[in-house]
Structure formats: structure tokens, C-alpha cells
Simulated scan of single mutants.
Amino acid sequence: MQKVFDVNHISVGLDKKFGSGGEADIFSLKAKPNILFKRYHQRVLDKRGQELSRKVEAMRHIAIFRNNPSLSWPKISLYNNRRQWVGYAMSRKNGIKFNSLSPMEYKNHIPDMDRLHLVNYLIQFVRLVSELHAQKVMIGDYNLNNILINLKTHQVILLDCDSFQIDTSESFFQCLVGSPDTTPREHQGVPFETVACRTSESERFSIAVLIFQVLMNWRHPFDMIGGESRAQNIKNGTFPYTKDSGSKVPKGNALQMWRNLPYGIRTLFIRTFTEGMDNPKARATLSEWIKELRIYYKKMQQGELSKELSGLAPSNQTAKQNQLSAQLPKPMQTASKIGSLFNNIFK
């Protein structure tokens, strides 16, 4: 396929393949390099092409998201020369996947990254999910590889939006995919396509898993000594970072990192991963996460808490520097590089 057509059968040429996945290939468009075309594989079109085309059209009519720079949202449907629906066009997003900022890789992308960066990204992410939930859109498949970070603007961007659960007044479309290690207990052990509906409560569990991974240097909350797979540990309902979990916390510095997290953050994790395992309504809400993450950010910015990526207690020298930083006049603090980069997160 060298060309695709819009609904009026006006053609546009395809440029090189931009990427490829299990369901589709991504191409750039010759005439519009800032637009990408997602072309579904024929086997996917044969199986559920009609449903996909309906879903994309329903998404396009949620106007509030159509031009949102933080979402790879469908802009227009595209067709082959026989006027058959084959995919859609979306704005091209630049950046790296969030997973590429792990402790082993971050220096290749943001050499001066610290915990201020990470918490800023998390605040943006949770606020973006909150906006989606307000329009009855659920992400369903929570995965750090589906989150992009723009290295110039530090903006958080969500990818693969066509897999989201969409609920409009006219139609409902399931999320058919997921990641077992971010899936709540009530949805464990069943095929994702049989999960009738993702809820805000089920999403809260998945969000808490991602936040934990980022704040704990990519360690999963259900990694544990003597445990099984992450998904099975979730199903078993044992969160290792509690007093009654014995010595299940992984060896190394995990326990020290945990203890260095703010009390409010730890409280939300414990509630979500203990009482919230079987009582979804007890899971931390998005507004609670935003509140505690903002408090964390401000305390680091003011020097009350360490900005070290390791999550470990700072050295005496670093502690003294933080104390001095906290005593600086406000204009000097807000003039810092990190302050100018992230001054939008409290709007």
C-alpha cells in the first residue's frame, strides 16, 4: 500500500515505516511528516475491523481529546483504494518511553535527572488519567512502555489510545488487552477480553502499581522473597511492605527506599494494596495521589526531602546543601532550572 485515502477519497502518499507492533504498522505521511498513519494488519481487520472503525469514529467525536498534545488520539479515519477502512491518522509524538528512564538507562536520555523529574512526570500522568476518567475513558492496559516523555518539554504523553475502554452515550467499547502485573485481584486469571468493564476502582490499583515502580526505582510492589509471579502474588493478596508480611521484602536497599518515602505516599500504597485488594472502593483516589505527590515535590524542592534518584537517605554533605537551599530567598529558588521546567505542575 503506497497510498491511503480519507473519507472523501482524497489520497495521501505513505513515507517510510515508523514502527511495527502486534496489531498494526505505523507509517509517516509524505505530505505531512508530523502525522502518522496506523495501518492494522489484515488478520486484525478481518477479525474486528468493523468494530475498530466504529471505535475510532467514536473516539474522534470526543472533541476534548482530539487535539490534546498529551494523547496519541485518532484524528481521521483512513481507507484503501477500495474504500475499505484500514486505520487512522494521529499526530506524531516525540520522546522516549518512560521505561527508558530506569536506573540503568536514564543517563543516556536525561543525565541530570533526579526525583523531581520523576514526581513531576507522575503528577502529569495522574492528572491526565483523571481527565480521561471524567469522560468515561479507561486506560485498561497500564504499562510504562505506553507512556512517552518528551525530552525537550518534559511533557507526559499516552500512546496506544485506541486500546482504551470508551463509553459514550451511543456506544461502549471494551479494552481487550492488559498487563497481568498491573491488573487488580478481581480481574486476575481471566482473559482480558472477558473483562466486561474496567472501572475507576480497578484503574486505581493499576495506577498505584506504576507509581510504586517509579518511586521505588522500577521495583514492582509484588516482588517478594518466597513469592511466585507478580500476577500470582497479586492474586494471593500479599503486599510485602507491611509489618505483618514478615521478611518478604526483597533483599538489598528496597526496605530503606520504602522507609524514605513520605508517610502520606506510603499510607496510600498500604491502603490500596491491603484493604483495597478485596475492597476496590478503599483504593487511593487520583485526587489523593495528586495531593501527596505535590506535597512530595514541594518538600524536595524546599530541601526537606532528598532529590536523590536512589531513594536512599542523602549524605551529610547533601543534607547540609538541602538545608541551605531551603533557606534561600524564594526568587533564587524559583529561578532554578528545575523550577522553570516544572512550574506548570501546580496550575
Rank of each mutant, 00 (worst) to 15 (best):
Q317H: 10
Y121L: 11
L78E: 13
V195K: 04
N279K: 14
V137W: 09
H109I: 01
A58P: 09
I265Y: 12
Y106Q: 03
P103T: 13
K235C: 03
S169F: 07
T182R: 12
R82C: 14
P180N: 03
T183D: 05
Y297A: 05
V249S: 04
L144P: 09
G264K: 14
T182S: 05
E193Q: 08
A196T: 15
P33C: 06
Y79M: 04
S171V: 08
I35N: 04
F65W: 15
G95H: 08
L305G: 04
P103F: 13
G140Q: 03
K97N: 15
R219I: 03
S70M: 07
N143H: 14
A208E: 09
S100D: 07
K291L: 03
V190G: 02
N150G: 12
N233K: 13
G303Q: 01
K136V: 02
L159S: 02
L29W: 00
T199W: 10
L128F: 11
R66F: 01
K30C: 06
K307P: 05
V249F: 00
L36I: 10
S171F: 14
N253T: 07
S53C: 11
D25I: 01
G303S: 09
I26P: 02
H154C: 08
Y241W: 14
D181N: 15
L29E: 06
H61W: 01
D46V: 13
L122V: 01
Y79T: 03
S28N: 10
H154K: 08
K281T: 14
Q327K: 14
A282K: 09
N94S: 14
M113Q: 06
S72E: 05
V126M: 11
R283Y: 04
L71V: 05
Q323D: 06
L29A: 12
Q165N: 11
K3W: 12
E51H: 13
Q174M: 01
I211W: 06
K299I: 00
I345K: 11
I110L: 09
I26M: 05
F172K: 13
L151T: 08
V156G: 01
M90Q: 10
N67L: 05
S11M: 04
H133M: 10
S70V: 01
I149H: 02
V249A: 15
Q84F: 08
N279Q: 12
Q232G: 10
A134V: 06
K93Q: 06
I166C: 12
L148H: 00
I211K: 07
F125I: 02
V177F: 00
P221C: 06
R83L: 03
K75D: 05
Q302H: 12
F212Y: 15
Q327G: 13
R271P: 02
I166H: 06
S179R: 09
